[in-house]
Structure formats: structure tokens, C-alpha cells
């Protein structure tokens, strides 16, 4: 069975502990990570979601120019899928308007990552929630 067929069959679940090449790529080479602590005023808003008890915490920063997301940076404490899903979300959201980016669902993220092991889906795909929190803070 080809990789594609396998993923289609399981509707996003790729079973066991299998990671797609896309997950590996984003896990080993995460995009848009905030490495240095932000300077005051560098971003327009910041949001956090998760708790260390569950093993996943995400922090996100955004800059908005003319209604569009110009910059989106993040940091994640978590496993491979938590890191990869935040990384891939950052690529999906940058350049979109806030309204457009708010429409990105966990399913969209999973699709973009070419599927995830089932056990990982509910716990580690938190990027869209972290973004919502950040937007809430932006609108305050």
C-alpha cells in the first residue's frame, strides 16, 4: 500500500508511532521559532495555551499590519507532533488575514503534515488554539 492510500484510509490517522516526512522535517527544522526573547513592542500580541502536566505548552506572538499577519513566532514545550504542528501552522498563517487564519482547523494542520498517529491528534495539535488566544489578546 502506498503512503497516500494508507493515510486516506485512516482519515488522518497514520497508526502506531509513524511520523510522515513532513512531520520529521518540521520537527528537526522548525520554522518561525522565536529564539531570542522579544523586545518590548516587537509584537502586537502574545498568547499561551496548555499546561506542563499534559506535556504540551505553546506560546505564540503575532505582528499585524493592515489586517494581515506579518509575523508569527512561537515556542513549544512538547513532543515531535506538538513542535511540528506549531511550525506548520506558522507557515500556513503568515500572510493571511486574522479572520482567514482563525479558520485553520486542527484537521487542516494534520492534512498539511500528511497525517499523524491517532494518539497524538487530540493532545498535541494546539496551534490553532494558541493562535485564538493570541488573537483574543490582540483584540483586547
Amino acid at each position: 500500500m502506498t503512503k497516500d492510500k494508507k493515510q486516506k484510509k485512516a482519515k488522518g490517522d497514520v497508526g502506531g508511532w509513524y511520523y510522515s516526512e513532513k512531520v520529521k522535517d518540521h520537527f528537526f527544522h522548525p520554522r518561525n521559532v522565536l529564539l531570542k526573547d522579544p523586545k518590548p513592542g516587537e509584537f502586537d500580541a502574545e498568547g499561551v495555551i496548555g499546561a506542563p502536566i499534559c506535556g504540551d505548552v505553546m506560546r505564540m506572538w503575532i505582528s499585524v499590519r493592515q489586517g494581515k499577519i506579518k509575523k508569527l513566532k512561537w515556542r513549544t514545550f512538547g513532543c515531535a507532533t506538538a513542535i511540528a504542528s506549531t511550525s506548520v501552522f506558522s507557515e500556513m498563517a503568515i500572510g493571511k488575514t486574522i479572520e482567514e487564519a482563525l479558520k485553520i482547523t486542527p484537521q487542516d494542520i494534520i492534512k498539511e503534515l500528511s497525517g499523524l498517529p491517532k494518539v497524538k491528534i487530540h493532545c498535541s495539535v494546539l496551534a490553532n488554539q494558541a493562535f485564538k488566544k493570541t488573537v483574543d489578546n490582540y483584540n483586547l
Binding site: 520537527f27 506535556g55 514545550f77 515531535a80 497524538k120
Partner: peptide, 23 residues
């Protein structure tokens, strides 16, 4: 840092070990 991430980074460097992390 989360244990599974360390295990997978070490795996990529050719080292096998395990973790007690939630993930």
C-alpha cells in the same frame, strides 16, 4: 524539555534510548 523530543533527536544521531514522558 519533553522526553520524546530528546529521544527522537538522539535517534536521528544514531542513539537508542527511552523516555517516561506523557507523550
Amino acid at each position: 524539555v519533553e522526553g520524546e523530543s530528546i529521544v527522537l533527536y538522539l535517534d536521528a544521531k544514531g542513539v537508542s534510548c527511552s523516555t517516561g514522558s506523557a507523550c
